[in-house]
């Protein structure tokens, strides 16, 4: 052991290798989270989809996101559930079921939902699903209701050129 300075490196590797599983667990979406998400995906095409377990059209839309991840890995996808942290089991059940278990997932963790929405977009009045298309140059487009496949494909094409 004494002659094994690589232990820390290895340990880090192991911990890093283990971490993604934990990172896939939903994170708490609070004030500042939207900004943090935008920042961490800066210069990459990003789609942020707000959804809820109480919104049937949101579920109908889920296969679209699954396909997006399969076919356009260059586009970053963030799913944000507007339910409550205590709904985590139902949320993860839905994500699992739609093959999105390892997608980046957040859950609203501030009961003052108006405050979260106001920070994300003053014009968003809470209808779901609500999707933001954020281009590499930071340009943001909002979309209420299920995103049509053609709308998505056009945007993806424009962003990744394929």
């Amino acid at each position: 052991m004494r002659y094994f300075p690589g232990a820390c490196v290895l340990m880090s590797l192991i911990v890093f290798a283990t971490f993604p599983i934990q990172a896939d667990e939903s994170q708490k979406f609070i004030q500042g989270s939207f900004e943090a998400i935008l920042k961490s995906h800066k210069d990459k095409p990003l789609i942020v989809n707000f959804w809820s377990v109480t919104c049937p059209p949101c579920l109908v839309e889920m296969p679209l996101w699954k396909n997006l991840r399969l076919n356009s890995p260059e586009v970053n996808l963030v799913l944000v559930s507007t339910d409550k942290p205590e709904d985590v089991d139902r949320i993860e059940h839905v994500l699992n079921r739609y093959g999105l278990a390892d997608a980046t997932s957040w859950i609203f963790a501030d009961p003052f939902k108006e405050r979260l929405r106001y920070e994300i977009d003053k014009k968003w009045r809470g209808e779901l699903p609500r999707t933001y298309f954020i281009s590499r140059n930071g340009e943001k487009k909002a979309y209420s209701g299920m995103v049509e496949e053609t709308v998505l494909q056009t945007w993806v094409k424009q962003e990744v050129g394929s």
């Binding site: 052991m1 094994f4 690589g6 232990a7 820390c8 290895l10 340990m11 880090s12 192991i14 911990v15 890093f16 971490f19």
Partner: peptide, 17 residues
């Protein structure tokens, strides 16, 4: 390595990520 990890964690030593 595993032992090292355990020891380090227990000792609060080597900082992970």
């Amino acid at each position: 390595a595993l032992f090292g990890v355990a020891a380090s964690l227990l000792a609060g030593g080597c900082a992970g990520p």
